[in-house]
Nucleic acid binder design. Structure first.
Lengths: 131, 131
DNA sequence: ATCTCTATATGCATATAACATATAGAGGAG
DNA sequence: CTCCTCTATATGTTATATGCATATAGAGAT
């Protein structure tokens, strides 16, 4: 997934944030929410606010991410019809998705460390500023 | 720069990471390094390893980011010829760049909080896993 | 009928990322 | 002198990501 998985000639070798702290932060959040319980996309939009996403988060990006997670085999879905209202998909985490969640947690811990380093240097540069 | 700066109909209203924890993390790192001292692009490539960037970081992305920072008035540069070797640019932080650095630090602190929240939930979900 | 809420999805323009490659001066090996 | 390497900056290409608008559609209320 990261540098540590491919040490070839490629500079980054993966798409989980070699240069950025985190790309696609929404994906690990969705996996974590689905680890707690299966849910519909519409509910997940609300639940993502727990992770600092805006209350009026673009729904399209959520559904797009869910479709991609499904393509990658990290979640499954089936139509959930019947109980009034339009049909909706119920998403569930797969075993592969849970493994990916663990990989993400390692990655996110590393990226948090990078931010800590940044903030530490920032503070030491400016701490004597306002005397 | 962020949500807090434009509360209109737009969902995010800025490009500093409404959905992502941080996009373009390299930019604040460059600003911080240039706050410490003026430097050449080539040196900055080495210095970026302090922030977790790969030792064989793509040079093109660094130079492109520096050009963009200059376009935005956050850094200035002038050619530094004479001392042997090819000509090189010496980059310096502007006052505007220093203000942006402060804005970035606020933003990065927020994003670190999001990661903390994620990791906290992650741990509480899995802490009783391996008994 | 029309409006609104729930629910999912697509289209499109632009931005960013990853990688390869181009250019060029200087110094050393042969 | 020619080739190679290191320093130093920059561009081109392709794939993916993001932001936002918009489409579709069922159900209940006015």
């Amino acid at each position: 997934m990261c540098d540590h998985h491919s040490e070839g000639k490629k500079r980054h070798g993966c798409h989980c944030g070699g240069g950025l702290p985190v790309e696609k932060f929404m994906q690990p959040c969705l996996l974590l929410l689905l680890k707690q319980r299966s849910a519909h996309g519409y509910d997940l939009i609300q639940l993502l606010t727990e992770f600092g996403f805006s209350e009026r988060l673009d729904p399209g990006s959520v559904y797009r991410n869910l479709r991609r997670l499904e393509e990658d085999g990290l979640v499954t879905s089936h139509w959930d019809v019947g109980e009034g209202g339009p049909a909706r998909r119920l998403y569930s985490l797969t075993d592969e998705g849970e493994e990916m969640l663990h990989a993400w947690s390692v990655h996110i811990r590393q990226q948090r460390k990078r931010m800590d380093d940044f903030l530490e240097k920032y503070q030491s540069l400016f701490e004597n500023e306002d005397l």
